[in-house]
């Protein structure tokens, strides 16, 4: 039997992480969490998570950044908002999950071939580049980048979709792509983080806890 020490030391905390998250607009109410577990009880995906949503809330508030950003929980959130509308302290749990996902992506905290963040990023790239998303292309790219075998397993679904006219063979896109590019350039130039009182002090991918 392999034994594992589970103790947490103060040096395991990234002090200020919780405060940082709670200073993001929409995430403030986390301060009031009473750990009642309503979120986990309602979450349809909580049964697959390594930490329940309630535990993620507490770990975040207590500055256990590494544990939170490496958890499967944030990726399993399907944004159904069941937790958010029922939370007795009106904590916007779904929005906090989004915030944590963004941080995990920016700081490289997820397994390489884990499909969910890959999908999110590919979605981002495609919509950014073409203005629209063509789902079947997106899914194909995702499978190629994460698990080619799974992609092969999907051929039947693809064929079925094709037969029913639900598998477009052409990538969709908008006409005025340059307009969108100019708009996005504005956001890239402006440091929103600075404007938001430094809610993302680490910036893109910079911290030592980095990728693994």
């Amino acid at each position: 039997m392999e034994l594992k020490r589970t103790i947490k030391y103060e040096s395991d905390r990234v002090k200020g992480f919780g405060r940082e998250v709670m200073s993001v607009p929409g995430c403030e109410q986390l301060e009031h969490c009473i750990q009642c577990g309503t979120c986990s009880g309602l979450c349809p995906l909580s049964i697959f998570m390594d930490y329940t949503p309630r535990q993620v809330m507490e770990l975040t508030r207590s500055d256990f950044k590494t544990e939170v950003l490496r958890s499967t929980t944030i990726w399993l959130c399907a944004s159904c908002y069941a937790c958010t509308v029922e939370c007795p302290k009106q904590i916007r749990i779904t929005d906090i999950m989004y915030e944590l996902k963004q941080r995990a992506i920016h700081e490289g905290f997820y397994p390489k071939r884990f499909p969910i963040p890959v999908l999110a990023q590919e979605f981002y790239k495609m919509s950014h580049k073409r203005g629209r998303v063509t789902e079947n292309f997106l899914a194909t790219i995702m499978f190629l980048k994460t698990d080619i075998l799974a992609a092969l397993g999907m051929w039947r679904l693809g064929l079925n979709l094709l037969r029913r006219g639900r598998f477009p063979l052409k990538l969709e896109g908008i006409k005025r792509k340059s307009e969108l590019e100019r708009m996005m350039a504005v956001v890239d130039k402006l440091s929103i983080d600075a404007l938001n009182n430094g809610h993302q002090t680490g910036g893109n991918g910079g911290r030592q806890h980095g990728a693994h």
Partner: peptide, 24 residues
């Protein structure tokens, strides 16, 4: 010439850019 709404998956990457997409 509508564009992608900036849906759920996008929000996980950059919320502000998702907002710009939707606002367009």
């Amino acid at each position: 010439d509508w564009n992608c709404c900036g849906a759920t998956a996008y929000m996980a990457v950059d919320e502000v850019k998702a907002c710009v997409m939707a606002s367009r």
